[in-house]
């Protein structure tokens, strides 16, 4: 279990750019090398034939519109662009796309999206999901847990006794976005609920000492369950 430097944050990302481009802008703005984010209710669009650099059309053709109901993902910067891995629930207005399984992160948001998340800075600690992140020695409020540690269930409960309002978030990183279906969702575990019997690679454990109240991100995450 490694204490790492992390910042709880809220932000809006620009619409009209490909999602991964907007998220890349956001990471750069905050000085993060990676982040874990949660977005809810974000209108989106996919315009056939529109190249990444072209302006968006004036009018949204309803056949091209849809909505990200929620997205929970880790993001890492490579160059100027962010790459995403995580879970999402979405729907398109076009009924022909109802059973789509692939969620392309190069689609565009149809308006700026509000999101909450945790940001990480570049450092020496290797994390499979977050890239190399910075250790925190000064009163850490977040711990990075490896697979072995997650497997030892009593550890989480022991920590829960020690830390006030400890919340353990686990996301299934073993599957990329490409194979997701709405039916396969179990993104969260919270110490107040049953632990899922899924295999996780890494987890975050943190306590509520940050200036920014955690109630918002907790409410959002429970709404996704």
């Amino acid at each position: 279990m490694v204490p790492i430097k992390a910042t709880l944050f809220e932000d809006f990302i620009d619409g009209y750019f490909p999602l991964n481009v907007s998220l890349g802008h956001m990471l750069t703005r905050h000085g993060f090398s990676s982040a874990w984010i949660l977005m809810r209710v974000a209108p989106m669009m996919e315009i056939p034939g529109l190249t990444a650099a072209e302006p968006v059309p004036l009018h949204l053709n309803p056949a091209h519109g849809g909505q990200v109901d929620w997205l929970a993902a880790t993001i890492r910067i490579s160059g100027q662009i962010a790459s995403l891995s995580g879970l999402a629930k979405w729907h398109w207005n076009d009924p022909a796309r109802a059973n789509e399984k692939k969620f392309l992160t190069t689609l565009r948001l149809a308006e700026p999206a509000f999101l909450r998340g945790v940001g990480f800075m570049a450092g020496d600690v290797y994390s499979r999901s977050l890239g190399k992140v910075r250790r925190e020695t000064n009163d850490p409020n977040i711990l990075l847990l490896s697979t072995a540690q997650l497997a030892a269930d009593p550890v989480s409960y022991k920590l829960k006794d020690k830390l006030d309002s400890a919340l353990c978030w686990r996301t299934d990183f073993s599957q990329g976005l490409a194979t997701l279906t709405p039916a396969a969702l179990q993104p969260w575990a919270c110490p107040y609920l049953e632990l899922p019997d899924k295999k996780f690679e890494e987890g975050l454990l943190f306590r509520n000492t940050n200036n920014l109240p955690m109630s918002g991100i907790i409410a959002d995450s429970l709404a996704c369950l």
Binding site: D14, Y16, F17, H25, A53, P55, V56, L58
Partner: peptide
């Protein structure tokens, strides 16, 4: 019709590049 400035958007925002009136 190309948007060239959005003076109330945050400093450095590239959003104007994505906006064009036909």
């Amino acid at each position: 019709g190309q948007c060239v400035e959005q003076p109330a958007e945050p400093e450095g925002s590239p959003m104007y590049k994505a906006i064009k009136v036909p």
